[in-house]
Design a protein around this nucleic acid. Sequence first.
DNA 1: TTATAATGATACCATTTTAGTATCATTCTG
DNA 2: CAGAATGATACTAAAATGGTATCATTATAA
Lengths: 134, 134
Amino acid sequence: MKLLTRNTDYAVRAICCMASKPEKVFTVAELTNGLKIPRPFLRKILQLLNKEGIVRSTKGLGGGFTLAMKPSRIFLSVLMEAFQGPLKINECIFKKKICPDIGRCPLRRKINMIEDHVVSELRSVTIGSLIKKG
Amino acid sequence: MKLLTRNTDYAVRAICCMASKPEKVFTVAELTNGLKIPRPFLRKILQLLNKEGIVRSTKGLGGGFTLAMKPSRIFLSVLMEAFQGPLKINECIFKKKICPDIGRCPLRRKINMIEDHVVSELRSVTIGSLIKKG
DNA sequence: TTATAATGATACCATTTTAGTATCATTCTG
DNA sequence: CAGAATGATACTAAAATGGTATCATTATAA
C-alpha cells in the first residue's frame, strides 16, 4: 500500500530543489548530485514534468530545467496523477459483475469515503506548502 | 495505489458469504461457486484465515470451513494486515539518508497524517458492519 | 561550421509484487 | 480402506515498478 511511488517522490524532491533558486537553470547532473537519484531516471522524470508544463527545458550548452510555475501552484495531487495515474485507491475489480450480492458494496462505499478524504487532503498540498519551513 | 489487494478482497467476500449461515460448514467448492474465485487460490486464502483463527477448518469428508468469530469481531484492518502486511501507506524510502534537507520531511509529515486517518477508519470497519444491510 | 553539451524520444531490461497453479501429504468419515 | 476434504509448500505467470541505453535534436561557443 504505497501512496507515493518513487517517481513521484523523486519529482517532489527535484522540484523542491529547483524551487530554492527559482531562476536558475539546473542541469540533470546538478540535480542528481544533491539528490542521489540515478541520472537517466531523473532525466525521464524531468522530461515528463516538462511535458506537463511544470518545468521548462532548454536544450544545448547551458541548457537544463527551470521551474515553470510558482511552488505554491504546484500541487502534489497533480504530480501524483502525472506519475501514478488517476487518484483512485479502490478500483472495483469485478466491474459490476459480482458486486450486487454479498456485503461487498458497503465495503466499496466505506473505501470510497476513505478515498475522498485522502484525495482532498492531497489536493491541499503544494510544493510551496512543503518548502515553507518544516 | 491500491488499498485492498485481491487476497483481501476475496477473503472479505468469502467471510461475508460464510457469515450468512454462521453454523454451516462450507467446502471450498461451495464458496467458489458463489464467488467466482479460482478454487486453489481461495483454498490458500482460507488456509491463512484458519491460521489466523478467523475461520476454523475440519478435514475429511463433510469437512470444510466455518467462521470462528462473530462477524462483528472481524476487523477489516486485521484481514488487511494478514494479507498485505502492516498498515503503512508511506515507507520512508531512504531511511534517514536524505531526509534532513530539502522539503521532504514536511511531506512525510503530511502523508503520515493522511495515513493515520486512513488507518483509524479502517480499524473501525468490521465484517459485521459490512453485512448489516447496505 | 563544427565540436560539444545539453535535452527529446523511445525502446529495452531488471526487479519486485501480486496472482494463481500444482502436487503431495494428512486427516476424517463411511 | 476408499474417497473427500484440508495442510503445506513449491512453483509459475503476469503486471507494475524501477532503472538503462541509445540515438536524435538543438543550442552554444570557439
